[in-house]
Simulated assay, not measured.
Amino acid sequence: MAINIKKLANEPELLASGHRACVGCTGATIIRQVLRAAGPDTVISFATGCMEVVTTIYPYTAWRVPYIHNAFENAAATISGVETAYRALLKKGKIDKKINFIAFGGDGGTYDIGLQSLSGALERGHNFLYICYDNEAYMNTGIQRSGATPRGAATSTTPAGKVIPGKPQNRKDLTAVIAGHHIPYVQGRFKHLFIPKNRYIIDELQAEVDKNWEELKKKAGVE
């Protein structure tokens, strides 16, 4: 379904002002745009994280749609349960409108702590949208490394020094993990590349990258 940006800008704000996010916070902007597109008939499941903290400091909330705060590990499990209840009510004729289901999690609650429940929800085929707000570290608790932290990055738990130059592990390829569940849509990388018969596309792309890289090294005088 095409979205008219001009029309979308005139939709009511479903994330109220006055929350504790910093001025210009990207996370708050993303939430506002997602809610504008999804509309008021939306249920949100939100894992513990910085955006949960700044939008729902007790006893206040900035959310103008049904909102469920979850522990770090179970945003996907919670929204899958709500979506299942919705389908049951539809079947019994007790509800007759379309409702959107969205789960939010940071990289800690998605790449690491919440990966198991997310995998289960995807495998079961629940109809919901999962959005990972990727800070590339556990920013809410002191900038500890996460599975999304790039290799070599300095964090409070992987400080860069003379012995260890930052995080020694590679960043987890979560998009490939999610695509491996064979769900209808994965944003972040083209899902069709992960179909075995299309493996040659990846090989051709990599060969082109390698070729250009070698040419760039020659121009820069690097061996």
Rank of each mutant, 00 (worst) to 15 (best):
residue 12 P to V: 02
residue 106 G to C: 06
residue 73 E to K: 02
residue 10 N to Y: 09
residue 106 G to V: 02
residue 216 L to M: 10
residue 129 L to P: 02
residue 209 V to G: 06
residue 149 T to F: 00
residue 142 G to I: 03
residue 161 G to S: 13
residue 37 A to V: 14
residue 52 E to N: 06
residue 12 P to K: 06
residue 146 S to R: 00
residue 90 L to H: 02
residue 38 A to W: 08
residue 198 N to T: 13
residue 5 I to G: 07
residue 147 G to Y: 02
residue 8 L to A: 13
residue 204 E to I: 09
residue 119 S to I: 04
residue 71 A to W: 05
residue 171 R to D: 03
residue 118 L to S: 00
residue 173 D to T: 09
residue 88 A to E: 14
residue 90 L to M: 11
residue 220 A to L: 15
residue 35 L to Y: 05
residue 45 S to M: 10
residue 87 R to F: 07
residue 90 L to Y: 03
residue 63 W to D: 10
residue 25 C to F: 06
residue 67 Y to C: 09
residue 43 V to F: 07
residue 125 G to V: 10
residue 211 K to I: 07
residue 166 G to F: 00
residue 67 Y to A: 12
residue 176 A to F: 13
residue 103 A to M: 08
residue 218 K to Y: 03
residue 110 T to Q: 03
residue 64 R to M: 06
residue 204 E to P: 08
residue 113 I to Y: 01
residue 42 T to Q: 06
residue 46 F to S: 11
residue 214 E to S: 14
residue 203 D to V: 13
residue 34 V to D: 05
residue 27 G to W: 01
residue 222 V to Q: 12
residue 179 A to F: 08
residue 130 Y to M: 07
residue 30 I to D: 07
residue 179 A to G: 11
residue 125 G to D: 05
residue 112 D to E: 13
residue 41 D to C: 09
residue 77 A to S: 10
residue 184 P to W: 05
residue 201 I to C: 04
residue 27 G to I: 03
residue 54 V to Y: 13
residue 74 N to V: 07
residue 182 H to N: 15
residue 113 I to G: 04
residue 68 I to M: 03
residue 136 E to V: 02
residue 144 Q to W: 01
residue 116 Q to K: 10
residue 23 V to D: 11
residue 216 L to R: 10
residue 117 S to C: 11
residue 105 G to N: 07
residue 110 T to N: 03
residue 71 A to E: 12
residue 145 R to K: 11
residue 33 Q to S: 12
residue 40 P to N: 15
residue 94 K to L: 05
residue 193 L to P: 07
residue 208 E to V: 09
residue 73 E to R: 03
residue 172 K to L: 11
residue 198 N to S: 09
residue 74 N to A: 14
residue 96 D to I: 12
residue 154 A to Y: 04
residue 89 L to V: 09
residue 35 L to E: 02
residue 1 M to N: 13
residue 144 Q to G: 00
residue 85 A to F: 04
residue 122 L to S: 04
residue 174 L to D: 03
residue 126 H to C: 13
residue 20 R to C: 04
residue 65 V to D: 02
residue 138 Y to P: 01
residue 148 A to Y: 00
residue 219 K to M: 14
residue 3 I to H: 08
residue 126 H to V: 07
residue 30 I to C: 11
residue 197 K to F: 10
residue 107 D to R: 01
residue 102 I to F: 02
residue 215 E to D: 13
residue 80 S to L: 08
residue 88 A to V: 15
residue 6 K to T: 10
residue 172 K to G: 05
residue 138 Y to Q: 01
residue 24 G to N: 06
residue 172 K to Q: 12
residue 154 A to W: 01
residue 6 K to R: 09
residue 160 A to P: 04
residue 10 N to C: 10
residue 102 I to P: 00
residue 218 K to V: 08
residue 79 I to M: 06
residue 35 L to C: 15
residue 198 N to P: 09
